[in-house]
């Protein structure tokens, strides 16, 4: 895949980090405001997709990165399951998905027990998954064109 013009590349350099930070914000405030892991993860992935679209020539390098993304994805899901299953042990009464951390004050960033942690995990997972899907589809398309 060919990249785009220098103007697009420069503008992307400015915009992509902002999009990424906005995604992070949505993930971290998922338990307090609309949004959460999935929405934030999609926004974070869109910043990566924007960069790939603008700088198309890096795609060849990214093919090797795909296994790393897959690792991140599986690891995130495993982390989610482990946190959910920890509730079985830590809650004392064998409750799956129990909120075993302290709930804190409503409205603070550090509150709601395990929910922010699981939001972060879901965000990582969704970001990795959508980027993987995008890379996989683009790579296939390139092979078809050959």
């Amino acid at each position: 895949m060919k990249g785009m013009t220098i103007i697009v590349k420069k503008v992307t350099q400015f915009i992509a980090p902002i999009i990424f930070i906005f995604g992070l914000y949505i993930v971290f405030y998922g338990h307090l405001s609309p949004g959460g892991g999935f929405a934030g993860g999609v926004i974070m992935a869109s910043s990566f997709i924007l960069q790939i679209l603008a700088n198309g020539e890096i795609l060849d390098k990214l093919r090797q990165e795909e296994s790393g993304l897959e690792f991140l994805e599986s690891g995130a899901i495993l982390g989610f399951i482990i946190i959910a299953a920890l509730g079985l042990i830590l809650s004392g009464s064998f409750v799956f998905f129990s909120n075993f951390l302290h709930n804190g004050v409503i409205g603070r960033l550090l509150s709601a027990g395990i929910i922010p942690i699981e939001n972060i995990i879901v965000g990582t997972e969704v970001c990795a998954a959508i980027t993987t899907i995008f890379i996989a589809l683009v790579v296939y398309k390139d092979e078809v064109a050959l």
Binding site: I133, L137, Y140, K141, E143, V144
Partner: peptide, 13 residues
């Protein structure tokens, strides 16, 4: 949808 698209691309090939 992603899976369907991937299948469609493979079928095209």
């Amino acid at each position: 949808t992603a899976l369907l698209l991937a299948m469609a691309i493979r079928l095209y090939r």
